[in-house]
Design a protein around this nucleic acid. Structure first.
Length: 196
DNA sequence: AGTTCGATCGCCT
DNA sequence: GGCGATCGAACTG
């Protein structure tokens, strides 16, 4: 698998978000295929942290692309984003769900509440816990060889992308910036019968 | 210095 | 389908 270069991330957040579907996040011995993402834009997107301007927390969003933006939500969960756009231009992609590939034993140890593989990484807070991704990785460059990277498989299966509104926000709630793989059992949400 | 509330999850009904 | 847990960032005075 090849590491995605910085140029992959140096594009519009929506484009990067859609193209990240099917790519593989590797952290240590664990890896997972991205099946659900959300795009967060710049100043006009009031749901995006970057819309409030540069602060200690959001600084990495205004830096070079291909960096991890990891922050704490609700006092207990971490969320993983990858910075998009060119340096100085904010925009990022929130990773919402993964299909676990390698290291599932380690993932179950970190998330004893998960009963099935489908529950391991089916949400932004779940996947960071399962993969062992914390704020210590905030600002990390994922485009260079190391323990934390995003990769492209040699043979990428064709995927169908479904678009919807983003989840759990109040501002700009109707913007169609959530993307997920059609038919995947690993996306977040309720285990209802029928599709989402 | 104090307050508000959030890009969530898991347990309960 | 509702709600409690739990804490840091950002904003107010």
């Amino acid at each position: 698998m090849r590491i995605l270069p910085e140029s992959f991330f140096a594009r519009g957040a929506v484009e990067v978000a859609k193209d990240l579907l099917g790519k593989v996040i590797v952290h240590g011995d664990c890896s997972g295929r991205i099946v659900e993402v959300e795009a967060y834009l710049g100043m006009d997107d009031l749901a995006a942290h970057a819309s409030r301007g540069i602060t200690e927390r959001t600084r990495v969003l205004f830096g070079p692309p291909g960096r991890a933006y990891v922050y704490l939500i609700y006092g207990m969960y971490e969320c993983l984003n990858f910075v998009a756009e060119r340096e100085g231009d904010p925009g990022c992609v929130l990773i919402r769900a993964l299909e676990p590939l390698e290291g599932t034993g380690e993932m179950f140890q970190r998330r004893p509440a998960a009963r099935r593989v489908e529950d391991l990484c089916s949400g932004p807070g779940k996947l960071t816990r399962a993969m062992g991704i914390t704020r210590a990785l905030n600002g990390a460059n994922v485009t260079v060889a190391g323990a934390f990277t995003v990769r492209r498989q040699a043979k990428e299966p064709a995927i169908e992308i479904v678009t919807s509104a983003r989840i759990g926000i109040t501002q700009c709630a109707d913007w169609p910036l959530r993307f997920y793989m059609a038919g995947s059992r690993f996306v977040s949400g309720k285990p209802k019968k029928g599709m989402q």
